[in-house]
Write a protein that binds this DNA or RNA. Structure first.
Length: 253
DNA sequence: AAACGTACCAACCGCTGTGAT
DNA sequence: AATCACAGCGGTTGGTACGTT
């Protein structure tokens, strides 16, 4: 047993970098495997969550734009608490983020509504853009803009046809890399996000070491796919590998 | 300056769906 | 068909930053 005590709570920078490193190596699938070989004392689940909600290069950070806010309201009125589904329509936003937003959003509105209810003089529709309609999980509200004004909404297939959202961990590096690049361009034009230190580190890694490691390693996977499974069997070699990597990487800088 | 309340965010938990065996 | 492992989702909680008193 002695199930190597599982770490919980906030992630450290080092853990983040380590996770990014292994996701770059193996893609964002097989989280249990990644958790194992990375030497992170985290569950696969935890790794995935961290990746999806924080480390993914496609993430847009910072406040929701008014458009996004309206879109959330609209889509929630349509689908209810299907956060992941809603998130697919907001590139760069995670289900968690939207969920959190909605929580505070609705709470605020509920309070506002309570106030307007308790003050009888206030009419029914004295509405600031974000008030008066009190959407709750049970009684969502649609502001008066139709889906047809929203290409994003319109284009959405009712059946979830495996749309690939940025946080839909899809797997392989080939798909991942260009996507990250594209997202970077988008971010560049937005400049809305505020990067923290970890992102600087990750940027450095991506630009320098990770890239070289990718180009260095990918041929190995191509030529010796079996290596992966060998490694899976003997995952102990990885901590050594990363330790060496981290010891000599830019991280120390 | 301290205490308190609120908003926001990150992370965990439990459950469900899905694919592999 | 049954079972298992893993991925994904939604709900919830805990921590912290920030504003107000």
């Amino acid at each position: 047993m002695v199930q190597d005590e599982i770490r919980k709570g906030p992630w450290t920078e080092h853990e983040d970098v380590q996770l990014v490193f292994y996701v770059n190596l193996f893609g964002d699938r097989r989280w249990d495997f990644i958790a194992k070989v990375s030497g992170l004392k985290r569950t696969g689940k935890s790794c995935r969550l961290r990746w999806v909600n924080y480390l993914h290069p496609g993430l847009k950070r910072g406040k929701m734009t008014p458009y996004e806010e309206r879109l959330v309201v609209e889509l929630h009125s349509k689908w209810g608490n299907r956060w992941s589904r809603i998130a697919r329509k907001l590139p760069g936003r995670t289900d968690n983020e939207i969920k959190n937003y909605w929580r505070t959003h609705t709470r605020k509105k509920a309070q506002e509504k309570k106030q307007t209810m308790s003050s009888p003089s206030s009419g029914s529709n004295c509405s600031s853009p974000t008030s008066s309609n009190a959407p709750t999980d049970s009684m969502p509200v649609v502001e008066s803009f139709s889906p047809s004004n929203n290409p994003a909404v319109d284009s959405m297939p009712v059946k979830e046809n495996k749309e690939r959202s940025f946080y839909d961990t899809g797997g392989d590096i080939e798909m991942w890399a260009p996507m990250a690049k594209k997202d970077k361009e988008v971010e560049e034009s937005d400049k809305v996000y505020n990067m923290d230190d970890i992102w600087k580190d990750i940027d450095l890694l991506e630009n320098d070491t990770i890239k070289s490691i990718q180009t260095m390693t990918s041929p190995i996977w191509n030529f010796c796919p079996d290596l992966l499974w060998m490694m899976e069997e003997d995952s102990r070699m990885f901590p050594t590998m990363t330790d060496q990597f981290f010891a000599s990487s830019t991280l120390t800088g």
